[in-house]
């Protein structure tokens, strides 16, 4: 498998937080790297945006060379932005990040 970076919106820096139910307004993104199975949690610069938090978050993730995201529901702007940025979208659910990564590895997540 090629080296991939996957981002998941989370609300805290905890090692094993649960996916946040909103994408653009999440406080942090957990970025998982398949190269060495490592993960880092980074602050989402779009969290306080007056409007357009979704696209702004996508721009940030795109700049971090993210290839895939595991997300809750998406607004139309975020959805369009992710597709334009050629980031693959997987439907997540309210589970710990580790479990979502495991499901993604087992190809149990639906591609949107």
């Amino acid at each position: 498998m090629n080296n991939l970076k996957i981002a998941i919106p989370v609300s805290s820096k905890d090692d094993n937080s649960i996916m946040f139910e909103r994408f653009g307004r999440a406080s942090y993104f957990c970025i998982f790297d398949t190269e060495d199975d490592s993960s880092v949690v980074v602050a989402n610069p779009a969290v306080g945006a007056r409007g357009g938090a979704g696209p702004r978050a996508v721009e940030f993730l795109s700049s971090k060379q993210i290839q895939s995201v595991i997300v809750p529901q998406l607004g139309p702007n975020a959805d369009g932005a992710l597709r334009a940025a050629q980031i693959t979208i997987f439907q997540g659910e309210s589970l710990p990040v580790k479990d979502l990564i495991a499901k993604w590895k087992n190809e149990e997540l639906n591609k949107l």
Binding site: G52, P55, S62
Partner: peptide, 18 residues
């Protein structure tokens, strides 16, 4: 200021309503 423009690798997206 209004996040109406967004850069992706191959284009600048314009969100008209923003």
């Amino acid at each position: 200021e209004y996040n109406a423009l967004m850069k992706v690798p191959d284009q600048i997206l314009v969100f008209e309503k923003m």
